[in-house]
């Protein structure tokens, strides 16, 4: 059981970060606003959690201009996707183990 708990990723302990990664697993890339509406969050809240995931290099940002409008999109890195899968696996094991 201890082993399994070690396998859980601290970065995903927070529900919002978990939500962000879940969306990024299904979406190739997504804009800040679409992510905001999917998760029903405020700007500041989402930004701070995205920063944390960026720092861990689980998420990467791409800043582009569409015409004159800045367009920021987010995507999960390979590392982030792998970490998320591991975390999910640990959660599953945890549940299976507790039965």
């Amino acid at each position: 059981m201890k082993e399994v708990i070690k396998q859980l990723d601290k970065a995903f302990e927070n529900r919002i970060r978990l939500g962000i990664m879940s969306v990024l697993m299904t979406e190739e890339s997504i804009t800040f606003n679409d992510l905001k509406s999917a998760l029903e969050l405020t700007d500041g809240n989402l930004a701070s959690h995205l920063k944390a995931l960026e720092k861990k290099q689980y998420v990467e940002v791409e800043k582009k201009f569409v015409g004159r409008k800045p367009n920021t999109t987010y995507r999960a890195t390979k590392m982030g996707k792998k970490a998320f899968r591991n975390h999910l696996e640990a959660l599953e094991k945890l549940i299976a183990g507790n039965h």
């Binding site: 529900r15 978990l18 939500g19 879940s22 969306v23 697993m25 299904t26 979406e27 997504i30 999917a38 998760l39 999910l88 959660l91 599953e92 549940i95």
Partner: peptide
């Protein structure tokens, strides 16, 4: 796990 599922569906 429920959150993950919900978010993946919702997106």
């Amino acid at each position: 796990i429920k959150t993950i599922r919900q978010m993946m569906e919702r997106s």
